[in-house]
Amino acid sequence: MKKRAQTLSRMKRQENLIGYLFASPWITGLILLGAFPFLASFYISFTNYNMLSFPRFIGLTNYRILLSSDTIFWRSLGNTFYHVSIAIPLGIVLGVGLALLLNNKVYGMSVYRTMFYLPNVVSIVAMALMWLWLFQPSFGLINEVLSPVYRLLDIEPLRWHQDARLAKFSLILMGLWAVGGPMVIYLAQMQDIPNALYESAEIDGASWVRKTVSITLPLMTPSIFFNFIMGLIGGFQVFTIAYIMTSGGPGRATYYYAYYLFDTMISDQNMGMASAMAWILLVLVLIVTMIALRLNRYVVYLGEES
């Protein structure tokens, strides 16, 4: 009995060591290369730093200003929450759907997959110009297509990204177009699903829908969860599409948190304030992510735990 416990604890110690050994390249890099910039930015968030002179310590002033007397801070945070809460669910549904569609073995599938991936590689200028043209209220393609609907409902054509109420949603639509990235991850995960599962289901006469719902989707939850977390992290840092499409407008309708952070740093040259914003963002996203990680064990199917 005693001997067995000893072996167990030795194995435990050993696994501890092996765990650290496997993680050591990453941990070493984090401590030697990552820790200083990370902690430096934390310190800078308590200073007044214009990127020219030495940072001057001012305590919690930056945080106090942001939270108590900066209206744009709250406005941009609200815009970001709106974006995250709509873009993520839509992105997952579309990404999974597209992956299911493209996981068929049909002639020319490679070409289709490449075409759907195209938006992830084209220049951002080309992308912006195309979407400005699609959304253009007077002669854009989307409103051309929708014009019978407008006539039927007798309403004014939508002004998409030029309308403060619709601008955020328009940018979300546009972001969905880069769904090829997550799609690749879903496709990769689908390859890990054992064929035997499908074969036995087919013998039971299961339809495609039935197989998708009871085999494919549950077994894809790890990558769905991954894309969900990544969507959260990326969504809270959304910036580029607003920068190129709307310049944060109309008004400040698409002025997202990361956009404000960028302006604080570049336009105002206020690195102290920008760092404080970055750390507030980090804490916020971390809280949301921790909640998601907690929920994860109820939702995500993992082979080992079943």
Binding site: Q162, S247, P250, G251, D263, S267, D268
Partner: peptide
């Protein structure tokens, strides 16, 4: 420092719109 840009521009476009 960017009064003519990031600070003024959102209000200017709202006035134009």
């Amino acid at each position: 420092p960017s009064w003519h840009g990031a600070d003024w521009f959102p209000y200017y476009t709202e006035a134009l719109d």
